[in-house]
Design a protein around this nucleic acid. Sequence first.
DNA 1: CTATGTGAATTTATTCACAGCA
DNA 2: TGCTGTGAATAAATTCACATAG
Lengths: 221, 221
Amino acid sequence: MNVNSNTNRLAGILMRYHKIPDETIRRLPVYLRGLLFLSESGQERISSRNLADMLSVNPWQIRKDFSYFGDFGTRGVGYNITKLIKHINKILKLNVVHRAALVGVGNLGTAVLAYAGFRIYGFDIAAAFDINPKVIGKKINNVTIEDVSKLRMLKKRNIDIGIIAVPRSAAQETADALVKAGVKGILNFSPCYIAAPKKVKVITIDIAIDLARLPYYMPSN
Amino acid sequence: MNVNSNTNRLAGILMRYHKIPDETIRRLPVYLRGLLFLSESGQERISSRNLADMLSVNPWQIRKDFSYFGDFGTRGVGYNITKLIKHINKILKLNVVHRAALVGVGNLGTAVLAYAGFRIYGFDIAAAFDINPKVIGKKINNVTIEDVSKLRMLKKRNIDIGIIAVPRSAAQETADALVKAGVKGILNFSPCYIAAPKKVKVITIDIAIDLARLPYYMPSN
DNA sequence: CTATGTGAATTTATTCACAGCA
DNA sequence: TGCTGTGAATAAATTCACATAG
């Protein structure tokens, strides 16, 4: 009993030590984007202050965020950009290519399929599905659109992420199918809550909801 | 001087009293979406618990959020849905129609223009601009695409929101043009920071950045 | 002398527990 | 009795200040 309670306490301390704030995880991709930009332009080092100015955030926020993972920088010098990119990629598990399947190739789906911005984070949209016979067989961005009934065994095809871009009424069943096919994460563009097993992470992006809080912050005259 | 300091203190107290957490503002559109859905299906009342279950959040979070604005509900009964919708719309300043101008009618821009989800919050994309002669003059969703050089005097056209869906390299100049034309808020889809005067609120949506934190939360096996 | 890394202080947000009203 | 509304308690995130390393 004493042993147990000690073990639990220890586990608690270790977990607490390793616990990364969600807000930090949310910011890491932003830092990464900036760092990749700097890397492309050939820069080798950067200080927290300069990176902060560039991204319009606070330097101490950046240092605090990085400090959760160990010593990335060199005191008096700054951060080595290449090294930092590698570190962040590893933390976010972006150091391996993630293959994704898109479901729903309408206006938004097409935009997603054509969007180049995913590649810098190591994402590859490797498959696309739709229910509309008119678009099935078509090729967009080197991806041939398949019948949605073929949506299974994604795990076998090395696909671990699903992207939902279907109408709201079909969103949940699409999610269910994706889970069944073995994806471990879902990016949902439908304006609704998606239920999924705990082991599958769902992130919902609702463009309208972000727009909806804009007027609140706009001056009235 | 004494008077001044008292006034300031009073203003401070009043402002503190009225200060709404940003996180609450972020959640209001989510509640609103759920309530609109309920309203459509004819329901009249709902309790914080039922709404919470529906949206997969906590009841006390909902009650706390609403409590910043006064008494919306009836103890022992719940909330009147219609009344609540009106209240939230007013808080978010969605009780007037907001006309928006879209700049950049590529894949993403087209999807935005075709997206019906904005309407429930009272948004109306009233104008669209592009630089490509091939699309200028075309009509999508009843909006005729204009030459981007015509992008000015949006205020005169009663447009107060700008939506940026151009390549990153043109994002900042587009924002500058929108500000000059008199918009008070900008929704930016370009993967970069946008500088704007303080009086203009900018909200950036970078789809890739949201996707980028998905693998972190996905189980490794 | 410069810029990181981190405990401590502060601020902000969430959760709880229950008084108070229908 | 049922459900809201809200102070108080807790937890989380941000900001600060400075010791520390190059």
